[in-house]
Design a binder for these strands. Structure first.
Lengths: 337, 337
DNA sequence: CTGTTAGCGCCTTCAT
DNA sequence: ATGAAGGCGCTAACAG
């Protein structure tokens, strides 16, 4: 690590003290313009790069944030990272990425590690298993800035950035009802997740408004492997009470649904209508008969990053203790046909 | 940053010296079992976390690698990150992620920064613009381990992990020829990129073997915006010499091609056959008439990570100065119809 | 088996 | 406007 030149050597080269050089490099006002010039030129010439670890140790800040997400092969997170990275690069911050793979134990291990002060702030979207949140409250209580995005933790009093999940759930369900569905199935990956609860609440409300009873046997919680999800959905479609509409509350379950329909020869949307939450950039390649709720993933990422840097740099904690809700978009492809 | 307890305080609590505590925590053989036990319990109780920056400064190693990629909304990189992260987590390394957005200047800036010694090793896939590579040779000459994956730099003598691009290009072209194509167009994003050159070489060889002349007006280099790519492909499909087969050498151009065909009402594969390099996890959602070359993205990521950690930890430089080539898979969906 | 000491490279008060 | 000195928290060489 670090084969380059250090401050002391640079100072020696210039016949100056390390403090003068350090100040010159930081553009301190108490250094003459000519000295600054000389220092900068030599630094450039020797391609001096300050040791970030020495600097972090001294200043007690690392210019680094942690990004903790459940999965990456999911277009929502991919787009969010793009937004986060854009802001981080602009602000000269570094981004450490941690994947929990929807595993609460990994999340706990990461949270524990983050107690070390490796980062100045944390951007997190919790796992679908996260019910106990002691690891997060502990982390939060150390004073490190945390911003939740998408999959938030309502109990922790910090900034949160989400989609309008209740409204999206309502809109999606309404869309299916308008399309003539009576027997609507609801697919989710968790019962505890913030987004699941809100989307489901919107779903129930939309049914209620139209006096359609909620059928609990049509509500599927698919938390296991892709294989078992596949089986569960297959059983659903083969059951005597086969749904005429399916609300896939996450992208992954929409894909599985499509695969099952493919295998069973069930035509979408002729035999069953499907609406899904999805942020696939490849929308045009999708079967045009799948309607979609698209989240503003990129903007959520950008916003989350902006908020965390604001908290870190301006201690804007209080004003940040609010939830920012960005609107989703419903793309109806049924009507296109 | 770092509100927790430090070594000194922990040592004071235990009435031991910091060195003893440090050694106990590192499971040194010269510490009695009982002391280790005592230390570990107290550390756990006070949830002591060593300051990573102090440790990195002292040990001159950071247990951190940099991952530098051109874009993230591309399934190849998404899957590769998954593989990289899996190995990094297993090895207790941290991953800093940097996106170049296909911008050579960003790549240069990042390379320059990495001179600082922030990371112990670098995993990089270069931009489509990377022709001058001084920034990379400079970086490499400092002695920091670098592993190229997918988009490699042939001129730099270090480990490289790629797909069998020449062979894939050959296979893909052969597939189109077998399907009856005579007028095959080739779409690429760069002429300098390692993968482009190799895929194109395979393309040419496949044509040559069947005595099909290469038509230069059917070779499109789309390096600009999505909009201009769209126009270029549209012009190609409207030209008098309209291709009956299209080789989309990257995922993005396949998607654009599909969009253009959609707009022009050109049926795939009836009017034009398309084969693309793509790693979309949502293959079943794709139009079944698009054939695909799928790369072992996850395995490439894993392998790249394994190699870099091997170099870092065992100075296995020489043996690592080789190119690992993993095989791609051709998924033919034309025949499925 | 345990303690003392000396830095890693940087920033920053304090002195000049 | 510049320099000297101390310490961020940790590890490792050197003592005992």
């Amino acid at each position: 690590m670090d084969m380059g030149i250090n401050l002391k050597q640079l100072a020696a080269e210039l016949k100056l003290s390390t403090s003068t050089v350090s100040r010159a490099l930081h553009d301190s006002h108490e250094i003459s313009t000519e000295t600054k010039q000389r220092v900068r030129e030599m630094a450039e010439k020797l391609s001096y790069q300050p040791n970030p670890y020495a600097s972090s140790l001294r200043k007690q800040k690392s210019k680094t944030i942690a990004l903790v997400i459940p999965e990456i092969d999911n277009n929502f997170f991919t787009l969010a990272i793009n937004g986060i990275e854009e802001i981080a690069q602009k602000k000269n911050y570094h981004v450490l990425i941690y994947l929990t793979h929807e595993d609460i134990n990994k999340e706990i291990a990461i949270a524990k590690h983050l107690l070390s002060g490796r980062v100045d702030g944390i951007l997190i979207s919790v796992t679908s298993q996260t019910a106990e949140i002691e690891h997060l409250t502990t982390l939060y209580s150390t004073g490190i800035p945390i911003v939740f995005f998408d999959r938030i933790c309502d109990q922790i009093d910090t900034a949160k950035i989400t989609t309008d999940d209740y409204d999206s759930g309502f809109k999606a369900t309404h869309h299916l009802i308008e399309a003539g569905c009576k027997n609507i199935a609801y697919l989710q990956v968790s019962e505890t997740l913030s987004i699941s609860k809100k989307r489901f609440a919107g779903f129930k409300e939309a049914l209620h408004k139209k006096n359609i009873p909620l059928q609990t046997d049509l509500v599927l919680t698919c938390a296991e492997s892709n294989e078992s999800n596949y089986e569960q959905i297959k059983n659903l479609l083969l059951s005597k009470n086969r749904p005429d509409g399916i609300f896939a509350s996450v992208e992954k379950l929409a894909i599985t649904t499509y695969e099952v329909c493919n295998e069973l020869g069930i035509k979408i949307p002729d035999q069953v209508k499907v609406i899904s939450f999805s942020n696939l950039a490849t929308a045009p390649l999708l079967n045009p008969s799948l309607s979609t709720i698209t989240q503003p993933a990129f903007d959520i990422g950008k916003k989350a990053a902006e908020v965390i840097f604001n908290i870190i740099e301006h201690r804007a904690v209080e004003e940040a203790k609010e939830t920012t809700i960005l609107k989703s978009t419903l793309i109806s492809r049924d009507s296109t046909k």
